[in-house]
Nucleic acid binder design. Structure first.
Lengths: 140, 140
DNA sequence: CCTTGATCCTCTAGTGGCTAGAGGTCCTAG
DNA sequence: CTAGGACCTCTAGCCACTAGAGGATCAAGG
């Protein structure tokens, strides 16, 4: 277990530049180096990076992950804060889903009403322009 | 109709720096200036900017909007391309909704299973760590 | 021991779509 | 003529990476 960065990358599915980036912003600690200045990682880093990857996949922001990692490091503490981060995130996801669904509705209507004729009669352009006429190039 | 940028901003709901930004990236043409070098806008710009704002609200990317604007400027052309842009966007929206919903499911399960006890027993942290034990701070 | 080529290093800059701030000029009402 | 609000340009920052230049190191084969 003395993995170079490429191997850590393969085991976690996190790209090499991203790993270095995580180190730079302090999500990962600086690992020990070889004499030739190359990073070498152990098992704890594999786990920590998997934790980060999974959290990112679930859409948590880096700042949230920072807190979640701290919590994970003190197993005897209350998990109230973790719960709160997760719930806030859930609310945000719900908000995004709602907004995307509304948007989907408007887009669907737009596309369905398009008569596939000239731009001038196109509902898509019309809806975007938000008024009853074609938008004409303005000669000012 | 010889509006300063602040008035254009008020009428379209697009912030002043954003208008200047749109000009910089070529979404809006450079308007005429006063002797004192201040921008003055007319009605066509109000319409064009409303078109842009509405498109952004619907989640279209700037490159898409660039094309849509070009189309809107040639009203006799076929609207096939507009239709295609809108359909692609709709597909992308569907993809995002699906992905967020899946994520919502996992998050909900996580939050519901949290026993509100110690981190060590917390499903949230456990799921994120993706294995059966608490993640412990690695002393290397 | 030496070469080869894959992997590693650091550093800078770019992505998208803005937003913020510094430091200065202009416009207009009183 | 002055005050202060609105305007100007320019640079830098946001998020979470990604790309690329230009060079060093490592491990395996000859």
């Amino acid at each position: 277990m003395n993995l170079p960065i490429g191997e850590l990358s393969r085991r976690t599915g996190v790209k090499v530049p991203t790993i270095r980036f995580y180190e730079q912003i302090g999500l990962l600690q600086s690992p020990p180096r070889t004499e030739g200045n190359q990073r070498r990682y152990g098992k704890p880093e594999v786990e920590r990076l998997n934790f980060i990857r999974h959290s990112r996949e679930l859409g948590f922001e880096v700042e949230d992950i920072r807190e979640l990692l701290e919590m994970a490091a003190s197993p005897q503490a209350s998990c109230h804060q973790a719960d709160s981060i997760a719930r806030n995130h859930l609310t945000e996801i719900d908000r995004r889903i709602a907004s995307l669904s509304a948007l989907r509705g408007e887009l669907t209507r737009m596309v369905e009403e398009c008569g596939h004729g000239r731009i001038c009669d196109c509902r898509i352009i019309e809806v975007l322009a938000d008024h009853g006429e074609c938008v004409t190039e303005h000669a000012h």
